[in-house]
Nucleic acid binder design. Structure first.
Length: 189
DNA sequence: GACCAGATTGTCT
DNA sequence: GACAATCTGGTCA
């Protein structure tokens, strides 16, 4: 992404990531997809954010420099992928919730054991599985590692739908979820 | 489509 | 010891 991209406001980054591609290169091949759904997690007034209760071993990279991957384990079996935002020491991130599959679709289908392309990356744990992301990528620099975000297209404001976030029990009323209007690849309408 | 049960374990209190 | 930024596969409509 362009210099300074990750220095912007977290909600602004969450919107601008829509339309860009997330790519992962592994020995098995390259897989990528266009980002169509994101959620912002903030440091102030947002108890749903992992950083809300201070720094721990798990959320350490959230407090590091922006533009890096924050990968964590949940529900006993899933990994979720976030982009760290905000200056070092603050603790904010953008959860990537869904992709429109682009490259390496056969490999994604094999990893996910499904051939339905709309279900391949339509959820935060699904896209992580499809791209082969694990805790190994925690802390990876998204501009220079095998796991990277590259500019593709710009989604205009009229094409972005803003709603409340999914799967959380706190701060459920905050409008911090964004997705591309009409996309069949989002986790849910 | 809506709703629901069950899977399964790292992390923090 | 409780919980979790989820998914799948089942039921019913």
């Amino acid at each position: 992404m362009p210099p300074g991209f990750y220095l912007q406001d977290t909600t602004s980054i969450a919107r601008q990531l829509l339309g860009q591609s997330l790519l992962h290169a592994t020995p098995d091949g390259v897989t990528s997809g266009r980002i169509v759904e994101t959620e912002a997690y903030l440091s102030l007034g947002d108890p749903a954010c992992h950083a809300a209760r201070g720094q721990t071993k798990r959320n350490t990279v959230m407090f590091g420099p922006p533009g890096h991957a924050y990968v964590y384990f949940t529900y006993g079996m899933y990994w979720l992928f976030n982009v760290v935002t905000a200056p070092k020491g603050v603790g904010e991130a953008v959860l990537i919730r869904a992709l429109e599959p682009l490259d390496g679709i056969p490999l994604m289908q094999a990893r996910r054991s499904t051939s339905n392309s709309t279900l391949l990356c339509s959820g935060p744990a699904k896209l992580v599985q499809a791209l082969g992301i694990t805790i190994t990528q925690n802390g990876a620099n998204l501009d220079s590692s095998n796991l990277r975000i590259e500019p593709r297209i710009r989604i205009h404001d009229e094409q972005i739908v803003t709603t409340t976030r999914i799967g959380i029990t706190q701060a459920t009323d905050l409008p911090l979820r964004y997705y591309v209007k009409g996309s069949p690849f989002i986790s849910r309408p």
